[in-house]
């Protein structure tokens, strides 16, 4: 299962990439730090899952990426990992189509578990479904 990490922090990209890559069946296909990079990555890398930050490089908004994916690539799943802890932010993004919202600083282990679970389900679906 291919994962695209979209975050403007290079430190996060690396640490989160390392964390996710450690999950069996997960491949970190690439990284993006702004909307344009994210859209290119989604188009070129065809990830199964996008791990998205709310704020991106150059005042870009993660919401725009989410909305694009929902509209243009409905097969691609999106979860949000953010340092914003406000309920409003959380509910706003979930409503817009994100599958999950994790606090980057305190819920990254939950996020890892969620991704692991998603990866298992993905593998199962691909093992029993039609060949890719």
């Amino acid at each position: 299962m291919k994962v695209l990490v979209v975050d403007d922090s290079l430190a996060i990209q690396e640490s989160l990439g390392h964390l996710l890559a450690a999950i069996p069946g997960v491949t970190v296909a690439g990284y993006a730090e702004d909307v344009a990079g994210a859209l290119t990555g989604i188009r070129d890398l065809e990830p199964d899952l996008v791990v998205l930050d709310v704020e991106l490089r150059g005042a870009d908004r993660g919401m725009d990426v989410l909305l694009h994916v929902v509209k243009e690539h409905p097969a691609v799943k999106v979860i949000v990992m953010s340092n914003f802890t406000w309920a409003a932010m959380r509910s706003g993004l979930l409503a817009a189509g994100a599958l999950a919202y994790f606090d980057k600083g305190s819920e990254f282990l939950l996020a890892r578990d969620w991704v692991a679970s998603f990866a298992r389900a993905h593998a199962h679906a691909h093992a029993h479904g039609p060949a890719p």
Partner: peptide, 13 residues
């Protein structure tokens, strides 16, 4: 915050 989050992730790793 990003750095601290990254530190935490790395610590777990």
């Amino acid at each position: 915050q990003q750095s601290l989050a990254a530190i935490r992730m790395d610590s777990v790793a």
